[in-house]
Each structure stands twice: as C-alpha cells, then as structure tokens.
Amino acid sequence: MAGARGGSRNDPAPDGTGALFREAGLAGLLVFGLAAALVGVRVQDGAASAIAPLAFRFDDAFTAAAAAALGRLGVALLRAGLAAPVLAGGTAVAFAVALAQVFFPAHPLLLALLFDTAMPNWLVALFAGFLALAAGWRLRHAPLAIVSETAAREAAMDRIGAEVQRWARYAGPLIFLLALALPLMPFADRRLVDVAILVVTYIMLGWGLNVVVGLAGLLDLGYVAFYAIGAYAYALLAKYVGLSFWLCLPFAGIMAAFAGLLLGFPVLRLRGDYLAIVTLGFGEMIRIILLNWYQFTGGPNGVSGVPRPSFFGLPFTESPPEGGHSFHTFVGLFWPLSISPTAKFS
C-alpha cells in the first residue's frame, strides 16, 4: 500500500526549464478552459437581465489562469529543488497582492490584473505565501530526496497529531470550564452565546456520528435525518400534545432511536458504499416527507411557537412573569443590573 501510494505521484520529474514552463502553461490553459465560460460570463438575473442577459468578466478568467500557471510553476520549481526563486517570487507575489488589496482595492489597473472580489485575491496571496514558506523551509533544512517527501509529510502530520492528542488531555477540561463560564463573561453577547450553542449542538451530532461511523464503521450519510426526527418530535409533542421539555427530551431520543431501528434492520445487511447510498436515500426521504407533509409538519414553514423549556414551571426567561419567579430569580442567580451580563441578551 505504501509503495503504491508513493507510485501514484507519477508525473515525470521535470528535467529542464522547458518542461517546467510547459507544465505551468498546461495548468494555466486548463484553468482558463475551466473558468472561461463559468467565470468569464455571468448569466444575469432579475432586473439586470432586462438590460443585458450576460455580464462579462473575462479578465477574471485570465487572472485565474495566470494564478494557476504561476502557482504550478512554483510547485514544479520547488519539486525540482530550485527553492530560492520560489522564495523570492512567492514572497513578492504574496506581498504585492496583499498590499494592492489593502491599499488600492478599486484601482482600475488592479481590477484588471486581479480578481474583482477580495476573497480570491486573498487566497492567491495566501497560497503564494505558503509556497514561499515551503521554499524557505526547504532552504534552511537539508534538501530532502523527492521520494521521501510524502513520507516526511506523513511523519510530520503524525507528530502534529500526537502533539494535539497530548494537549487535548489538558485542554479538554479547561475548555469545558470555559464553556461553563462563557455565558457569565462580560463579553458574552447574544450572538456569541448563539454560536456557542451551535457549537455544542454540532459536538453532540459529532458524538452520535462517531458511534455509527467511527466505532461501528458504517458510513451513514443520512445521519442528519435523526437530528430532524428529534427536533420535530420535540416541536410537535410540545406544541400539540403539550408535553414539557423534560418529558419530550427522552421521547424525542426514543423516537429517533426507533427510526434508527427501523432503518437499521434492513440496511445492516449492506456494507460499505451500498450502506452509504441507502442511508443517503433515507435521509433524503425524511427531508422530502417533512417538507411535503404539510398538515403534519407545516412544510417549509416549519413549526413555530414551540414552548420553551422550563424548570418545574419556572421559565428560563430574563424577566420573571408577573407576580412569579423565573429560574434565575428563584435560585438567586442574578447580578446587579448595571453589570448584568444577561442584560445584553434582551
């Protein structure tokens, strides 16, 4: 396997400058072919299409081709062992593009030379900088034989992985404490807390996926279907049956688990790609059903007004209901209003 992987890099090592430039030219030509139609011409829509159905950006297609040719030239030079020109050229291009983007983003000459939007320009600068860094690294260290490049890279990646795992042991509890303290931090506004909640949701999704894909080795591409089932189970049960969040929590889990069971029995006869496809199809089916079963799920409008969770009848709201308590006033979890972080939530 390892030998085959090394052999998969079967480009003939470029032996002369002619070969180098031909490789770069081919890359540029290919990218121009890719970009000429889709980047060079834009189909206008809406009001703009009444004036002209097409907008032309051939300069951007040329820019893409030139960037690809230059980048390929850099990579080929690096592979041929000529690190010094790559270091010089990469640094020059990275700085030139970055400075131009920062100081003259709307200069007509630069608009013609570079991409019209900022993001691809930054990518070009980033890649040029990366090439320059790689060249610099190559110059400082003993030149490696080309054959061992893949092996060296993998060894480096393994080292980084081991390092990350070593740090994760200490970082994990620390991050957990930080996550607990985050809502109480003075800089925690609504947006930050929302993002943090999204992060936690994805962590939980990742855990579930890890059980299926990681531990059981079944590539389940329809995994999100269970996410949807859980969400709809809570929304519908809470809204129409009137169950509380704490009852719905296990119910939603049980329902998603039953859906998994329903799916699992037939598809566990399959392995590998077939399993991936069937689960993908299942996920799509769930999505289509949820979108089209209008009376039950509300279709694309979704379910609105889902009751929020409460704690033994105490709502988790900032301002307590008239004559009652909300959770944080009841347990005394509040600050003087002047420094209250929760004041920013409203």
């Binding site: 037939p266 598809v267 399959l270 199809g281 799509e284 089916m285 059903i289």
Partner: peptide, 20 residues
C-alpha cells in the same frame, strides 16, 4: 408529485436490499 423522489429512493432501497 410531491413524493416522486420518495418513490425513486424507495426503489433504490428495495433494490439494494433485495438485489444489490
């Protein structure tokens, strides 16, 4: 019309299960 995709995917699942 809404469930035509579901029909196609059901066929897919059936084929894969009974005659891969």
């Amino acid at each position: 019309v809404e469930y035509k995709d579901v029909a196609a995917f059901t066929v897919l699942v059936m084929v894969l299960i009974f005659r891969p």
